[in-house]
Design a protein around this nucleic acid. Structure first.
Lengths: 341, 341
DNA sequence: GTTAGCACTCTCCTTAGTTGAGTGCTAATA
DNA sequence: TATTAGCACTCAACTAAGGAGAGTGCTAAC
C-alpha cells in the first residue's frame, strides 16, 4: 500500500505524538506542532482518509485519533527511520559488558537489566536451548556410598548436575571408567544430536558392564526430554505498572500472570521468520492478555549459530525505533561476550 | 493488658468480620451476626472503649470500626485460638511432598507453591544459608586446556560450581591431587567453620606445590563471602493484586518492587526471636511499603539445626490462625523431606 | 448496666449543568 | 481542484447539588 507523502507525514505525526503523550491526537496539534504547512481542516481531511484505510481510530466521536495496530505496522515497516543509536548509549552498553562474567546466567541477567533500564520496558530471554550446545565434559563422582553426582558442562558455560542413587557396590573406579567412556562417546557433539538412537546404541553396547551406565544414560535421556522446556528469564516486569494504559489493575494482573508462565513466554518469543529483529504488534500476538502490547525480539548467537532469543515487551504505543536499535546493538555485544565465556 | 470477656468477644467479632469483608464493621452487624445477646447500643459502648484502648479505629466519623495493628496484635497473642488444621489440608500437604525431589531448590519451590495456593498470600523463603551446610564433596576437573570446573556438594543437596581459568600446564593428575587434598581437609566440616584462619593455614601450607591450590582456595574464599547473600525465593506475589486494600496501583508497585530486592526480602524474614512461628503485623515491619502488610515466618531444619526461613506475606487483614497452622504443618513436612534428600 | 430513640455526620451515588476539545460539513477562496 | 475558515454538533470529563444509607454519640428511660 502506498500513501502519498502528506498522509505519511500526518500518520507519522499522530504516531509520534501518541507515543509521547498516550493521549488521542487532534488535527490542531498536528498542524501546529509538526509544521506541515497546512491548516487543521486539511489535516482533518487526511485523517478521515487514514481512518478509512484503518491506520487510525477514534476512541469516541469528539476525540482525537489514536493509531491502530495496522497503523503501527505501517509505521514500523514503511515510515520509521531506523534509529542510529547515540554514542552515549553505545558506550553505556559496551561498558556494562566489560565486567568479567563467570556464568552464562549472569551474562543473560546482566543483558536483561541493561535492556530494561535503558528502555523501561519488560525484557525477556529464552535461554540457550540445551540442544544447541555441545558437550565439553561429562563426569560422575561418588558423593557418599550409594549416591553419585553426575555433571555435564557444555559450551557457552552451561552446567547441569544431578545427584543420582547408585548401587552401593559401585566403586570410585567404576565411576571413573563410566565417565571416561561417556566422555569419549559424546564430547564435542551437540546435545540435540545425541538422539535416542545413539543413546540406545550405547546403552545396548555397554549395559552389561555396569549398572551405572544405565543410570547415567537415564540422566542424559531425561536431559533430552527437558530440552523442550527452554529456560526463561525476565527483568523489569514492573515497568508495565508505569504505563498509563495499564493503570487498570486487572489488565496488569493478566499480563504479569502470563509472564509467570515459562511456556507462554517461551512461545511468545519464538519467531518463525529467522534472522534479524522481529516486531509483533498488538493483536499480532497470540495471547489475549498482551493484545495491547508489542514485542520486539532478536536472536543472539554462539559459534555462528542462533543460540537464544531476547526480547522487549511494551505497550503497542512503544518507542519502536529506539527500542529496536538498542536491542540490535545489545545482542551484538551479548554474542561477543558469550564467545569470550 | 486484660480485657473483660465481652470486650474480647466484640474485638474478636470485629476482627473476624473485617478479615472476611474488608469493610468497616458496625455495631448492628456485630450484635446481630455474632449473637452476643446484647443490643447494638451496648456494643457501641464497648466499641468506644476499645477505640480508646487503641485496638480499633474509625476511618471517618460515621463509618464502622476497623482493627488497628495493636488490635490484630492483641487478637493474635491473646484471643485467637490456634487452629487445628483440617484433615483434608494435612493430606493435601503430605501428598504434595510425596513426589521425589532431586534438588533442594525444587523442594523449596514446591513448598512455596503449596503455601501460596493454600493461603492465597505471597510466600517467601530465604534459602539454606550456605554456612550452615557441611561439605560432602569437592572436586576439580579439566574442561579444556586452561579451564577447570570446580564443584562442591554440601548436605541438603546444594551444589555450587564455577569454571576457573588455570595455567595451561596443569594436568588432570594435578587436579586430582588437589581435589584429594581439599576433600581430606574439608569433608564433613560446616562451611562456616572453614573460616579464614583455616583457609589461610591450608593455603600457606600447600601454596608452593601447585598454583591450582591458590585458585581453588580463592573460589572457596569467594564462596565464604557470598555466604552473606542468602538466596531468596518467592511465589504468589501476584496474589497481592487480589486484595481489595491494594487496588491502588502505586501501593502494589511499591510492594512488588520491594519483593524484587533480595536483600530486603532476606531482612524481612530474619527473625530475632528464635524458634516457632513469628508474626509481624503492619507497622511492626521495618519497610514502609509493607506497613499495611503482615508477615508470618517459621524456620525449617536440617539435622536438628535451623536451616532457613519460610514466610507468608499478606495484608494486615490476614487469616492469621489458618495461615499459621498451614505454615507450621508445612515446615514440619519440609524439614522431613529435606532430610530424605 | 442496658437499651430505645433520635439528631447528627459523613461517604457514596445519582443527576444535571458546564466546559472544552475535537470533529464533520459547507461554503468561500486561491 | 485543493485548501481553508466558519460553524454547529458531539461527547467525555469535571463540578455542584441533592438525596440515601450506614453508623455514630448522646440522652433519657428501663
Amino acid at each position: 500500500m502506498e500513501l502519498d507523502a502528506r498522509k505519511r507525514k500526518v500518520l507519522e505525526a499522530i504516531i509520534i505524538d501518541y507515543i509521547a503523550t498516550a493521549e488521542p491526537v487532534g488535527s490542531r496539534t498536528i498542524a501546529r506542532k509538526y509544521n506541515l504547512g497546512v491548516s487543521p481542516a486539511t489535516v482533518r481531511n487526511e485523517m478521515a482518509d487514514l481512518e478509512e484505510l484503518g491506520f487510525i481510530e477514534q476512541p469516541h466521536t469528539s476525540a482525537g485519533r489514536v493509531p491502530s495496530d495496522a497503523g503501527y505496522r505501517y509505521y514500523v515497516d514503511c515510515i520509521m527511520e531506523r534509529n542510529v543509536l547515540a554514542k552515549e548509549a553505545k558506550v553505556l552498553i559496551e561498558q556494562s559488558y566489560q565486567t568479567k562474567m563467570k556464568q552464562i546466567e549472569e551474562l543473560i541477567q546482566l543483558s536483561l537489566k541493561i535492556l530494561s533500564s535503558m528502555t523501561s520496558y519488560t525484557s525477556l530471554v529464552v535461554a540457550p536451548q540445551f540442544g544447541k550446545s555441545t558437550l565439553q565434559l561429562i563426569q560422575l563422582m561418588q558423593v557418599e556410598p550409594g549416591k553419585a553426582l553426575i555433571i555435564i558442562v557444555t559450551n557457552g558455560g552451561r552446567i547441569e548436575n544431578r545427584i543420582i542413587d547408585i548401587p552401593e557396590a559401585v566403586t570410585k573406579t567404576d565411576l571413573e571408567i563410566v565417565s571416561a567412556v561417556l566422555n569419549e562417546k559424546f564430547k564435542g557433539i551437540a546435545v540435540k544430536d545425541w538422539d535416542k538412537i545413539i543413546l540406545k546404541a550405547v546403552q545396548s553396547q555397554l549395559l552389561g558392564q555396569h549398572k551405572v551406565f544405565s543410570l547415567a544414560l537415564e540422566f542424559l535421556d531425561s536431559l533430552l526430554c527437558d530440552e523442550a522446556e527452554d529456560k526463561v528469564y525476565l527483568a523489569g516486569a514492573l515497568n508495565i505498572l508505569n504505563q498509563p494504559e495499564f493503570k487498570d489493575i486487572s489488565k496488569v494482573k493478566n499480563i504479569l500472570e502470563l509472564l509467570e508462565n515459562e511456556d507462554v513466554v517461551s512461545s511468545m518469543l519464538k519467531d518463525e521468520g529467522e534472522g534479524g529483529i522481529q516486531v509483533r504488534i498488538g493483536t499480532e500476538n497470540k495471547h489475549d492478555s498482551i493484545k495491547e502490547c508489542s514485542i520486539i525480539t532478536a536472536t543472539y548467537k554462539l559459534d555462528g549459530k542462533t543460540f537464544g532469543t531476547i526480547g522487549l515487551l511494551g505497550p503497542t504505543r512503544m518507542q519502536y525505533a529506539q527500542a529496536m536499535s538498542i536491542l540490535e546493538f545489545l545482542t551484538e555485544n551479548l554474542s561477543i561476550s558469550l564467545k569470550r565465556l
